[in-house]
Write a protein that binds this DNA or RNA. Structure first.
Lengths: 228, 228
DNA sequence: CGTACCTTTGAAGTAAGTCAACCGTCGTGG
DNA sequence: CCACGACGGTTGACTTACTTCAAAGGTACG
């Protein structure tokens, strides 16, 4: 049930890491991904799936970080979401992926056949509920994203930092797995504006930047005031 | 099952229109809202539900038009979606509404108890599937919205007009049920920018504006080029 | 017929984008 | 071991698109 043919083209077998022992005992729905899935490794910038491909699998980040994105006709890239360890992704509003997914840093992703889950959902209302909840989570994510995109650059960056801190479980420090360009394409800004905004937040002692990828939230209240 | 106490405060009974005869015969899931729901009338600008209230009901527009929106701390209003006849709304990522809903023009909305639907979903996989599909539709809507918000004013307006034309089923003309302010708050622009953009599209013969609320798409190809 | 709201238009200001150069870090190879 | 090159990030000068403030039509409704 969980070692069927995988979606990935050439070196699928190579990338598989230790297949877990087939536990048949029912686990809580939250563990379904771990029980039913197959772990796969992805290198930095490697594609997990592409827009236009059939959405035959769901994914859960075990380690690393994943971005989903679209590229419009004129070449602009819009990042849909970042997924951190524990996050589930691959949900789309249909049978075809409308976004592509890539690993931001190399890591491991648990892969579950979508048909296996939906089949279980037909007989098990708690699994159906899980699918609905995960989709609702994705919806909330999208709505929060909309909330960010209608604000000023400083507000967008502040909101982004706060959201990331919350997800990383830290109230004082954020480690950015993604580049400035990734942040810019997520927030609908240019890389220069993101950089300038961060340095300006630093100059007002709202944050500190011990390195480019580490942000210390020195004045979370001020950030929250910005994010409004 | 479908004449239980309604969510609305004072004049609920007054606003109810002809309760449909209780058909028990199973209908297709698409009709569930018509079968299970109670029709209610809403006047222009009347609230259907408010942000923060429990999301105990789902809604389907029978006539008129509904907007959902949030108001941020600094007073800016962001419109989440417009719902036209046939559209279902009230889905949220949780048990509490995070957006408010108002009628844009007076019309009728079919109201269904959420608990009634989720109860049925527990035993009927097709109903569970319906709930998932409706949530997926909402997700697609949000993602399309994100796609609009990262573009230039002309691109946003062009994309908005095309999307509305498609939903209204016309390739050549759009009737706008909403004000310029509504459009502005949906697209993350000011009312002046929306107005200017429309007049500029008219001056290039891309659209015609026989009246403020009617838009004739004279050059849909050019619009599509803008919307990219 | 009048009033209130919606829409359009104009002029000036500003936030973010664009173009370009520079800096720091890391990894590689001479 | 140092030098180089590639990449990611920062900073500066200038441009532009959108906002803001203000006022003048239009349109609909009492």
């Amino acid at each position: 049930m969980h070692t069927e043919t995988l979606p990935f083209h050439a070196p699928a077998a190579r990338r598989m890491v230790s297949v877990p022992p087939p536990r048949r005992a029912t686990a809580t729905v939250g563990d379904l991904f771990d029980v039913m899935g197959v772990p796969m490794q992805f290198a930095r910038n490697e594609e997990v799936y592409g827009a236009g491909e059939p959405a035959d699998y769901f994914y859960k980040v075990k380690s690393g970080c994943v971005r989903t994105y679209t590229v419009s006709a004129d070449g602009r890239r819009q990042i849909g979401s970042f997924y951190l360890p524990g996050d589930v992704f691959g949900f789309e509003a249909g049978d075809i992926h409308s976004l592509s997914a890539e690993a931001i840093v190399s890591g491991t992703v648990q892969v579950v056949k979508r048909a296996a889950l939906t089949a279980r959902a037909a007989g098990d209302a708690s699994v159906a509920r899980l699918l609905l909840d995960l989709t609702c989570g994705e919806l909330r994510r999208a709505q929060d994203h909309i909330g960010l995109l209608v604000r000023s650059a400083a507000e967008r960056v502040a909101g982004f930092l706060l959201a990331l801190a919350k997800r990383e479980g830290s109230a004082t420090e954020v480690v950015l797995p993604m580049s400035r360009q990734d942040i810019a394409d997520y927030l609908g800004l240019t890389i220069e504006t993101v950089s300038r905004t961060l340095t300006q937040l630093e100059s007002t002692a709202t944050i500190a930047l011990p390195s480019a990828r580490r942000v210390v939230l020195r004045n979370a209240a001020a950030l929250r005031g910005l994010a409004a």
